[in-house]
Amino acid sequence: MAEADEVISIPSVETAPKEYTVPGAQEILLKCVRATFDGAGAGGDFLPTLEIVSPAGQVSGTFTADSAVAAGASAEVSWFPGVKAAKASGAAGIQAQLLQAHGAAFFPNGGGPVVIADSTVAELGWTSIFRTTPPTCLDWMDIGGGSAERVTVAAGGALNSPFDVTYTIQVNWPSFTGLRYVEVAPDNGDPFCAVPQRIAGHTTPDDDVQVLTGTFSEQTGALTGMVVRCFQQSGGPVAIVTDPTAQFFAIGPTA
């Protein structure tokens, strides 16, 4: 049967979360989602949120409404493409911040040589970070006893939340045949960072340069560390001789 547009309706009332699972052997293109939220019994203000969860149980996408619904109130929420975050009342415009990092040091290894043993996951820490100011939503924290840094994200500074972050991480592996990946994940489970996201491969030379790109919309002022990890299974130990790099770009309405 040819593909066709359909409406899946689940009218029942449920306590959040409410879910739909794509049935076996099927595939859908999601075009629009609608739901009614009744906050009469809510334990507090809330953000209506759409999450996409992989079959492995990982949240691969988080999409929130522009503003919170007050406890006791109700909302009929529609998600569809092309909707941008609302500009905050009184905002003068938009601002952006760029953060660039390089000078990698892996952990564990005490921040030392960039070498990964077989079947080992190591965090990619940075020894050199540059960022523009303001705003201050992109920053960094010490890891490995202060010998390297982890990029952090938090709403605030000169930006109102939510703001969007686009990132690119590039790792140049030496030539070898074997599974390797690069991934980024929040260190505190922050659901607004739509990660972990990963790029993986096992061939050479096609997978010797891995470029991981992605976006997420940060909603909160809670400090979130963006942990960049590398893994290689059987090529090693593998010494990465070319300086890995990372770039984070945040943009949003001014506070």
Binding site: P11, T15, A16, K18, I28, C32, A35, D38, G41
Partner: peptide, 13 residues
């Protein structure tokens, strides 16, 4: 305590 109802998904099958 938040109740969700009327979930509708528009999709291409």
């Amino acid at each position: 305590g938040v109740k969700v109802s009327g979930l509708t998904l528009e999709v291409t099958n």
